[in-house]
Design a protein around this nucleic acid. Structure first.
Lengths: 316, 316
DNA sequence: CTGAAAGCGCTAACAC
DNA sequence: GTGTTAGCGCTTTCAG
């Protein structure tokens, strides 16, 4: 509707002066400032953000790449990011990929089109070689550790945490331990889980690992397999509390007792795990999200490690 | 970096021609089209979105007002909205209010600044009189029914659903029924719950209703009160499955059996409810979100009712 | 303290 | 088919 020229004309000043009062510049006489403000109020005028963004070359919008938006773990990181975005007056755009590498690249190119000031990657499909070129257009922050110096990281030291979790299970007397992972071997956290497992127990038997677990249902299905192996595992390390809950549910349904018949350890300290009293490794994802946001707006390439903690409940 | 002029100059054509190939206009000779495309590829050029948005007067960005971003119910709606946004090539900006009315108004004014093409309100703090003026700047869609003709609605018929839920409990022989709600009496769904309750059971006794329940912990605390009343309720209708899970957890912890000692009915068919086999009223929030998005981009002011369904499990 | 004017990067009449 | 040009709405030198 009304633009800055209309305001200027009506107030009998130049657009420059209007711009000055809009941006609280000094060197505007109180008289004109009031005159302009009156017209602004009268017209209920608000400056056009696109024009400002165009000229400033920034939008105060940051994008968050997540694979699924209905996954508790990513929601936690998003939660942390949103916390900080409000504090710093940024807007956040949610960019769900369903692990589609092409879509991920499209999202990254929103840096180049100047639509986004920065992007935070909570989980990725492309390799870093494909991602880093986009840092030329704006900061890219990862919630996973990477050596690439162009990428700032607010990361979880998953390897250490996995090793500790497996040792914990071992200490409790478990030798036959199974685990679930979110993705196949192309994912770093899956590989880390494997490596940590090997360090503690040696190479995992093929039927002790179940891939592609995201939801409770996936956990349920995993348990259907794991708990019917002849040499069935005495403990299961799930890659999330929802998955653990599914395992729990199935175990109970076939009359097993937890932890007597099978011990269960989850991840991320989600409400459902609390409800079922499942012990869990809390990677403090909210904090990871908050830190990621800070790195993003600072255009920092630091590598910040987020501490984890094990929460003991009654499932192991 | 490079802009459309650079491309034009390098390709030996006018900016118009470049713009034409960018937007797949016809009436560009194959020869020039190729020449331009080559330069575009060579420079890895992408048009600036702010410039385009400025001139077009739209951003293909829609905002979603939610109170909390870590609440399963709102996540479900957001999920539906994101589904459709990808399909239609829109971006979605998450706008968490924590029920701060002032912040909500600020978000609404993003329509006026032309930052957003539309906004979807999943839950509001302001009254409609304060909200409707913003429809002058762009479509506002509500996930709650309202008579205001300026507002499109993709709504749940909560009143009917609540009545049915309470009748169901009554049929099962329950006379002393308690319930939880998310907010105090200023919220429409709270009022609807009250009215529905009255229709079925008459005026609720004050200690049979617990306000401000959002999370499992809130449910736990609600149960701590409800299950220690002398005339304790024989059934509880929770305002979400997470809340129901908290109630479940506390009931179990004091040795009660569900549904024998207390029946439990949840809402929204969330994973946690499935895990605990809690019967639930599924308001199909994902679908509500999808429909809301469709209304938003169609600039429709239709009032669409989303059907609900009761899922029978073993908690009642 | 104030304003004219030159852009930011792009689209779309309009003319040729 | 193609190019010239006038904006979109704002910020920011640069002169007064």
């Amino acid at each position: 509707m009304a633009n800055i020229h209309d305001i200027a004309k009506k107030a009998g000043v130049s657009v420059t002066t209007v711009s000055r009062v809009l941006n609280n510049h000094k060197y505007v006489s109180e008289e004109k400032r009031i005159a302009v403000q009156n017209v602004i109020d009268e017209f209920n005028y608000t400056p056009n953000r696109n024009a400002i963004d165009l000229i400033r070359g920034e939008t105060r919008q940051i994008g968050v790449i997540i694979p699924y938006n209905n996954n508790q773990a990513f929601d936690q990181m998003l939660h942390g990011i949103l916390n900080k975005s409000i504090e710093h007056e940024y807007s956040v755009i949610v960019l769900p990929t369903t692990y589609d590498a092409k879509k991920e690249l499209e999202y990254l190119s929103m840096l180049q089109t100047k639509m986004l000031d920065a992007v935070i990657i909570t989980s990725r499909s492309n390799n870093w070689e494909a991602i880093t070129p986009f840092t030329k257009y704006g900061p890219i922050i990862s919630c996973e550790y990477t050596d690439f110096s162009e990428i700032g990281c607010s990361y979880i030291d998953r390897y250490t945490s996995y090793v500790e979790a497996f040792y914990l299970l071992k200490e409790r007397g478990h030798e036959r331990v199974a685990f679930t992972t979110a993705r196949e071997m192309e994912s770093k956290s899956t590989i880390q889980t494997f490596t940590a497992y090997e360090e503690v127990f040696g190479k995992p038997s093929g039927d002790y690992v179940i891939f592609n677990c995201y939801s409770m249902q996936d956990g349920y299905r995993a348990a259907q397999k794991l708990l019917h192996i002849k040499e069935k595992p005495t403990a299961i390390y799930a890659n999330g509390d929802e998955v653990a809950a599914g395992i729990y549910q199935y175990a109970i349904s076939i009359g097993m007792h937890i932890p007597r018949d099978v011990a269960l350890l989850g991840q991320e300290n989600q409400p459902i795990g609390e409800a079922l009293a499942i012990s869990t490794v809390d990677h403090q994802l909210i904090q990871a999200g908050e830190q990621a946001f800070e790195l993003a707006i600072k255009k920092s390439k630091d590598k910040i490690k987020i501490p984890y903690q094990i929460i003991h409940r009654s499932s192991i």
